Computed example of a mutant assay.
Amino acid sequence: MKLNAYQLSVMAAASVKKNLTITIIGANDGRINDPLFPLISGPLKNRCTAVLIEPNESLNSILRENYSFTKRKVIINSAVSNQSNITLYSVKEAFWAHCQPTYAQNWPNYRAPTGITSVDRNFVKKWIEKYQSASFNSDAAIDSRTVRCSRLQPLLSEKASMESIDVLQIDAEGHDDHVLYASDIELLLPGIIFIEITHLSRERLNALRKHLVECAYSCVLQGENMMAIRVPQDTTDP
């Protein structure tokens, strides 16, 4: 398997740690289109602990099945946010078969429609209208539900007994920067952050990069994502 820069960075981190701690926010089914799954299920199978955070409880059974190869996992049904709860918009299951984009060929029919679940209703509406294969009112195909939220540090402390992590991966369909701001990276100190940026405006992307740099990270674009590597800080006195 040819590894990309992100995967190589994770493998490099694993080479110097006995157990790598990985947190994935927006895990969906944990497998399809996830750059870490080939590593966690392969060379890192017995060398990492994965925390899979997914607010859609209907994906629980699929997520557990896809991660049945390891006991070193924690599945948390929650959203990461500064708010106590948020409204998530998604495609109703009755419309999944009529919303199958070409990029989802050979995927299970749930994967693409659940993969665009977002706090932005208009984002979901536009996606449906772009990919619907039958004539129906896009508004009628949108479901909404309120989910509980927490900042990341207390969530990991309570549910996974973790006070720090090595890798943080975020895929939140347009809400990615807000999730990062609620992820307490100053406390958890992840060495590697991988975050989707394709839905962010230039202004939001610049603000996100500025925040990461201020938190001692070096950032590099990776297609539709950005990878941030924590820069070791010199704590010696001059």
Rank of each mutant, 00 (worst) to 15 (best):
M162F: 12
L188S: 03
T23S: 10
K73I: 15
L52W: 07
N77P: 00
S218D: 12
Q132G: 05
R31W: 11
V167A: 03
Q132D: 04
C149S: 08
I40E: 00
K126Y: 06
V51S: 02
Q222A: 08
S133E: 13
T117E: 01
L155W: 06
L152Q: 06
T87Y: 05
Y103W: 15
E203N: 13
I53E: 01
V74K: 12
Q233C: 10
S81R: 10
R72E: 12
Q7Y: 07
W127K: 12
K71P: 10
S161W: 07
A13W: 10
E93M: 14
N225E: 09
P55C: 12
N66P: 03
N33K: 13
N33G: 11
A94S: 15
S78K: 07
P238M: 04
M227Q: 12
R148M: 14
V220Q: 13
C149H: 12
S118L: 10
I40T: 09
R204F: 04
V91G: 05
P154G: 09
Y110I: 11
H98F: 13
V80D: 08
W96R: 03
D120R: 00
A50E: 03
D166W: 07
K71H: 11
A13I: 10
D176W: 08
N122K: 09
Y131P: 00
S78R: 11
T117I: 13
V10F: 06
S218E: 13
S118T: 12
P232N: 06
C149W: 10
I197Y: 01
T236M: 13
I25N: 05
D184N: 14
E173A: 01
G26H: 09
S84Q: 15
M226C: 13
D171G: 03
A172E: 03
H178Q: 15
D29T: 05
P55K: 05
H98A: 15
T23W: 03
T21H: 08
D184I: 09
F69N: 05
C149Q: 08
I170R: 12
R148F: 11
A112H: 00
M1G: 14
D120F: 04
P108Q: 05
C215L: 07
A13P: 05
V213C: 04
W96K: 06
N28K: 11
E93T: 15
P190S: 07
A12T: 11
K71I: 03
W96Y: 15
A50H: 03
Q222K: 01
I193V: 14
Y217L: 05
S161V: 08
R202K: 15
A141F: 04
A97I: 08
S68D: 13
C48F: 03
L52E: 02
N46Y: 12
E57Y: 04
L39E: 00
I32H: 10
N28M: 05
N33C: 11
V124R: 03
S138P: 10
L44P: 00
E196G: 04
F95T: 08
V220W: 02
N33I: 02
S183G: 07
Q233Y: 10
K130E: 14
E186L: 11
L20N: 04
I25W: 09
K17A: 08
R202H: 13
E54C: 09
I197Q: 02
A94R: 14
E93V: 14
D176G: 01
L36A: 02
A182L: 05
L36S: 06
T49M: 07
A14D: 04
E196Y: 03
N60I: 11
P190K: 06
R148S: 14
V147S: 00
T87M: 11
V147E: 02
S9F: 06
E57S: 11
A94N: 14
T236N: 12
R204A: 07
